[in-house]
């Protein structure tokens, strides 16, 4: 099976030279979801923005990003404009700020349809209502005429998903799509996204800091730390037998309904500042398993889908 999105050795440097994404490789397949997980400041969002070609002017990207074989990093701006929305779409964390407050929800969804699919305004408006109803909004005709502030947070995120899906893209990048939402609403939005993936064969790249979201909504996972993917593989395998000490530590640090009365296995220290350089493994200063060689170089262990970067992996 060839990948829908294939990212190879992607590097991104922000204006000013901070390298926030360092040699990152991953693939997203049609009908599957990849969770890109890590703590804040690990470069998750920058990696996604680099894929979308949305990094700020002056940022430098290297490596290769291919969507169905077509190279995105070298494509002319006009081609990227065509692809955004129609082939790949992105939704963001805060649905309130991602929507324009002075336009109705329906007209914002219709906009993409008139641009990319050249629908007449009336047809686009009718399609917007259908789209709203397809993402589980009851009374879609009324809600299409509502302004964003008249909708709840969950409803706004559904509307944003409807807008992102308007032109039937093959890849959806969702950056912390449920972080601003209450838990009960979060569960509904994740079900919606996984349903769309299954039913439409959509490839989903889901960015989150929450391992729970990954376990609820993703097939594969890539764990990012300080700009690098330190471990990746199918969620079931990575979560049941993590090999990189950072993955293992993240899994253990989370409180749960069962952790009462026991101290959490806290990870010492903190994520290094964005773009900071350190020879060898960047997790080394926080790692209890570090060896001398970890200060010198980073190994690449495994191949294909299941990979990790560690000299002294957990379980050895």
């Amino acid at each position: 099976m060839s990948a829908l999105l294939e990212v190879e050795r992607l590097c991104a440097e922000l204006p000013g030279g901070a390298r926030v994404v360092d040699e990152v490789s991953f693939s997203v397949f049609a009908g599957r979801s990849l969770g890109l997980v890590g703590e804040s400041g690990c470069g998750k969002t920058s990696a996604a923005l680099a894929v979308m070609r949305l990094l700020p002017d002056g940022a430098v990207t290297r490596g290769s990003v291919k969507l169905s074989g077509e190279s995105l990093l070298e494509a002319p701006e006009a081609r990227i404009d065509e692809l955004r929305g129609s082939q790949l779409s992105m939704i963001f964390q805060e649905p309130a700020t991602a929507l324009n407050p002075v336009l109705t929800v329906g007209s914002q969804i219709a906009e993409g349809l008139t641009v990319h699919q050249r629908l007449k305004p009336r047809a686009a408006a009718a399609r917007a209502v259908e789209l709203l109803s397809s993402v589980g909004i009851a009374d879609a005709e009324v809600k299409a005429r509502a302004y964003p502030h008249q909708l709840s947070g969950g409803m706004r995120q559904r509307a944003l998903i409807a807008a992102a899906l308007a032109c039937a893209p093959r890849l959806l990048i969702a950056d912390e799509p449920t972080t601003a939402l209450d838990v009960t609403v979060q569960a509904q939005i994740l079900s919606l996204l996984t349903g769309l993936k299954r039913e439409r064969g959509l490839g989903l790249l889901l960015i989150t800091h929450d391992l729970g979201v990954v376990s609820a909504a993703c097939d594969d996972v890539a764990v990012m730390y300080a700009g690098r993917i330190v471990e990746q593989g199918p969620v079931a395998e990575v979560f049941s037998s993590p090999r990189h000490p950072y993955t293992a530590a993240l899994l253990k640090a989370r409180p749960s309904l069962q952790s009462r009365g026991h101290p959490l296995e806290a990870l010492l220290g903190q994520v290094p500042p964005l773009g900071s350089r350190l020879e060898g493994c960047r997790f080394r200063p926080r790692c209890s398993r570090a060896l001398e060689v970890c200060a010198v170089k980073v190994p690449h262990v495994g191949e294909g889908a299941r990979r990790y970067e560690c000299h002294h992996p957990v379980g050895t």
Binding site: S40, R254, A266, Q270
Partner: peptide
């Protein structure tokens, strides 16, 4: 707080 720091603060509170 991020999950690793969250665990530190929860342990501290305890």
């Amino acid at each position: 707080l991020d999950v690793s720091v969250q665990a530190q603060v929860l342990n501290l509170l305890s």
